[in-house]
Design a protein around this nucleic acid. Sequence first.
DNA 1: ATGATTGCTGCAATCGTTTGCAAACTCTCG
DNA 2: CGAGAGTTTGCAAACGATTGCAGCAATCAT
Lengths: 336, 336
Amino acid sequence: MIKIEDVARLAEVSPSTVSRALTRPEMVAPTTRERVVHAAHQLGYQPNKLARGLRKRQSHLLGLMVTDILAPFHATLAKGVQDAAEKHGYVVFLFNTDEQPEKERRYLKELQGHLPEGLLIVPTSQTRQNLGIVPGLTVIELDRTSGTPGVHSVLVDNVAGARRAVEHLIQLGHRRIGMVAGPPTVTTAVERLEGYKQALKAAGIPFQRRWVATGDHKEEGGYRAARQMLELPLEQRPTALFAGNSEMAAGAVLAIRDLGLRIPEELSLVSFDDTRWARLMQPPLTVVAQPAYDLGYLACETLISILGRQEPVQATSLRLATELIVRSSAAPPPQR
Amino acid sequence: MIKIEDVARLAEVSPSTVSRALTRPEMVAPTTRERVVHAAHQLGYQPNKLARGLRKRQSHLLGLMVTDILAPFHATLAKGVQDAAEKHGYVVFLFNTDEQPEKERRYLKELQGHLPEGLLIVPTSQTRQNLGIVPGLTVIELDRTSGTPGVHSVLVDNVAGARRAVEHLIQLGHRRIGMVAGPPTVTTAVERLEGYKQALKAAGIPFQRRWVATGDHKEEGGYRAARQMLELPLEQRPTALFAGNSEMAAGAVLAIRDLGLRIPEELSLVSFDDTRWARLMQPPLTVVAQPAYDLGYLACETLISILGRQEPVQATSLRLATELIVRSSAAPPPQR
DNA sequence: ATGATTGCTGCAATCGTTTGCAAACTCTCG
DNA sequence: CGAGAGTTTGCAAACGATTGCAGCAATCAT
């Protein structure tokens, strides 16, 4: 590994001058600068970030923790974060917590040793406590909030998105609408349920407990929840289902198929969160699409801009709008 | 940030002793050790990896470059890598090259400054040249090879996988089988085409140029390629299609639908690479599944074991087997 | 011509950790 | 009691970069 001293020797200057020529060009004479730059290039010099980070006490490193990198939503979000980070010369450490608070703890400790300048995190249920591991670190929460005071957040307008989806079903004539809800420990799930309730209320449809089944945001849970509602006696059975996320929607699709129901003739289905297969399945699924890439990109930009400021910044909170994409999985309820 | 000196003061020993107590316990007296450990714990001491890395000239860092983190195959692979890395105390930098050699260059430079100990890479078309940026680094290529001498690789047995898929179609009675192939610059695409040819040859079916259309491994390219073959006059048109990867299979599905053909009654479809939607679409897609997670996990384990050895290691190459998952998108050809 | 100013460069200290070496201490045994 | 061996500890020098300070030369004003 070429170091600054090698460049210095070749350019016949001191290491200090090399450092300055490369990082603060205006401080060194043009002719010297050129000699240094040339020597550096010739040797293929790359500054040692460890040494630099140690001395400058900054790493240009960001941490990103998502709960499930395999979910397209998270992968997309991660890409947005990385693209934004790269634009500003930051590098990001990506960790996958798998929704496990204990993994989150471990990764936070690991991360801390690398002196990150900021953290972007999709919280788990224990994030509020876990953040104690990294005191003083600037944190932005993505997608969900942990309720930790003082942290910034970039979220999606879940209430409005869910309400819009359910309104769509209501407009088609549905009155018995079931919701496959996510776990109440996750803020997005709570908000989407709230949107569902608001839509019902606005339409004067009474809220019914039996038409809400809770899953775990996974396919398996979605399958069970959907099945539970669809096995109600025919006259109580929902004519439409609203799934709280795409994984559970996948489970719902499987359940619906197993019960031999046809979409959308016998049952309408709308889901939160768009995916590749939503467009490819037959019939294509009507969904509430989230701006996942923008979410990540924006969050990262926000984080970096906060890092740039001297004085402490008020905790900011951003909500991005969703978009209802009407495809063909929702239709008027069957006549009887 | 608590440093070793703080711990030393609290435990009333020198910094050297703290360092030894924490990293080479057998070198310090039990009572001292305990005092140090206790002090460290009490202060919440976390070693500064930058300083340590600088001094020991090792970072416990690995680089991972994939060409498309949004593709489930890559995301899964990345997860395998990370899980294995974590098990051994390594951290991984994830980069996304988007198939762009120039991004790859940039990221390699960036990575180099952090003194990674190894690199796992899904090569692009220029990887062979680009690897010159990181001389001496231990490299493992994943999924594809770049032809660089001396690098290790962990791959999938594409030839056998593709052959198996096409044999399946032949067994069903197909004789006119089209292949939506990937770009010839990518080794996996070449190998899968080879498998296709081998299967035909073994069955005594002559290879025909017009039944191979090349896409770009993306949906768009798959759509065009499929369409091109399916618009041949009826008696020349393939009765089955084999897609070289899942993205192109998605394009093919769309093309088939646009042409109003039914799967599998009028056209059979088999694809390389399993995905979520392959199982969810109607009819579920028959695919050649790749052990993506294992690929990443194994590659990372291999890399780490190589790093552990002193003497230079012979370039190793691993091939993992694929699995044909028969679902319902392939059936006997229509009778005429 | 002199002193002040400016621009450029190098010296040396620093970031937090590890580690070779030697000093200090403990223990054993003649 | 003291030599020798074996432990345990601390000192100080690294690792590779950045930066405050001071020195030096060139330029400018008077």
